[in-house]
Amino acid sequence: MSFDQFEREVATQDPSLEDWNGLPPIVAAEPDSWSSGLIAREIAKVPVPSTQPMPGTSLGSGSPATLAATDVSAWFGSRKVLQRCSLRMEARQVTALIGPSGCGKSTFLRILNRMHEVIRVAKVAGSVELDGVDIYGRELSVTQVRMRIGMVFQKPNPFPAMSIRENVLAGLKLSGTKSTDRDALVEECLTRAGLWTEVKDRLNEGGMSLSGGQQQRLCIARSLAVRPRVLLMDEPCSALDPISTRVVEETIQQIADDITIVIVTHNMQQAQRVSHQCAFFLVEEQGVPGRIVEAGATDHLFNQPSDERTLAYVTGRFG
């Protein structure tokens, strides 16, 4: 992105930011009464703004959204790596993307929040709609899309120049969003990410002082702080030990009520544990782009898949 592009963005950003800011702050009335298990539910009860159902203007946060990709193809330079992939990622559902290495799962995921175009030679075709609004269209700017559709990366990447607290609030600072009660937000997000009890006494220490698993949960908290409607996770547990993995999985299940989740994983047990829907990606032969071979309910995909290659993959016979 160049600076002039970005200036255009700032120009278009303000009016809608207004209504984003105008939302009631998502803070429970009595912080004292919070207990960690209840918090996710508390948030679900926050009133949704009345402008919400109007398509095209429903840019605020508050409720999970359905993400629909239609005929998505992707290129790196002249090499096509994804071929006409269509997938609906339903609200309140966890969608898992599985498939062997190099079949384009990460590419697909990055297309869903316009991170694909960060790479210079990357190109994309097709459309992705967030509750009916094309994220590649004129209604939403790139930055607005990324605020609504957050992302957690494979390798934990907290900002080293910031403290734990600042890391959680980084999204607000970076997107120029104001928030009324920062302390409450920090506590809420860290609690939802399952990290609060471990770090509540050291919020001002550097983000890099945490262990790898804690760093990844900090990154999840950081993503939650901007109140995304969708959260994309690219192998979020691949660098973590089994216990941290379990904590992250519990976090996923907790936040799934409020945030649509799409997760890439190589771990079949994990896909079965956390996801409701599943999509199986595959490069059918050397040199052709990857495609979605089969998608549907996780139970169905793992127990009686319609495609024999899916069966072979989920039972560990290839890939």
Binding site: V118, V145, R146, F153, G171, L174, S175
Partner: peptide, 20 residues
């Protein structure tokens, strides 16, 4: 990875530079 993390949070590029 830090630039990507910042961009994915909805930061315009000048804030990625100045804040991260």
């Amino acid at each position: 990875s830090l630039r990507e993390a910042a961009l994915a949070l909805g930061a315009p590029q000048w804030r990625v530079v100045t804040r991260v």
